[in-house]
Amino acid sequence: MQEQLNAIVAEVQKSAPTIQARAEFEAYKATISGPKGALTDVMKGMGKVPKQDKPAMGKLINEAKTAVQAAFDQVVERIEAAELAAKLGPAIDPTLPAPDAARGTLHPIAQVREEMVALFRRIGFSVAEATELETEHYCFDALNIPSDHPARDMQDSYYLPESLKVNNVSKHADEKYLLRTHTSTVQIRTMLQSQPPIRIVAPGRCFRRDTPDATHSANFHQIEGLYVDKNVTLLDLKATLDHFVKTIFGPKAKTRLRPSFFPFTEPSFEMDFFSPDLGKLSNKWLEIMGCGMVDPEVFKAVGIDPEAYTGYAFGMGIERIAMILQGVDDIRYYYQNDVRFLKQFA
């Protein structure tokens, strides 16, 4: 019996290393430890072994089983390793080009807009929205731009036919619709809907009837700011806009408020800035926005008491600021959307 066991172990130890596949292994395993296997046969013979020899015999059988199992384990390990290797395939080349597309980019104007909005959000402003389609009242009259003001000339604004009805943009009376020429319309719509304190920025698309060239585009974008509360002062206006300029253009930027005129603010200013770090545009005063204290006539138009409240407002062209920041010298690049251009700002 011992010889039989030794022979089985020897046979297994000889054959096992040559087994390559799982099926082959299962078949071979059956010939040893299956119901009719050689080892099983020997174990079946235990019944005939005299009682006093049983412990020794049992020990021998166990030793043989352990030896066979060890040989089988090695086979399984080897086969699994081979199967995994087959599954994994050859090693990757980490330098091959990616077959997947890269993340997309926000449009450069949207990037600048978001940067500006984020800045104003940090100091308590929230974003307001309104329609691009507007009426003369909200675009002009309520902003104290009377009907004979040059800004209302037909050649400056895109008008819609008098007969047009618009389902979701309200009229004040029987005035005409037009495409808003500035985001200041959002000031009016917001003040009509809510009570002070009001602290909003309104980024949005505007339209002017200009012949397109390097600095003019049929549509462009502005960002409007409005803060109305008790005791809002000129000092607050300057502090906010200085903060804006130094954040966007760097701490070395200087600002100045140049007196100007807008019908909807009094006093009115153009803000200029001056920076040593702007390439070709360095070291000269550049105009970047109009601003001022909300004119009492505007407050009257929206039913806010100008004796109780004061406010400041500002408005600037997003393309203009983007062009300065990004070194773009022709506004039309922004509307062509050549992906090589778009990716330069990613």
Binding site: G104, T105, H107, F207, Y334, Y335, N337, V339
Partner: peptide, 8 residues
């Protein structure tokens, strides 16, 4: 990628 286009 985001594009900006004319409204007209």
């Amino acid at each position: 990628d985001e594009a900006f286009l004319y409204s007209l």
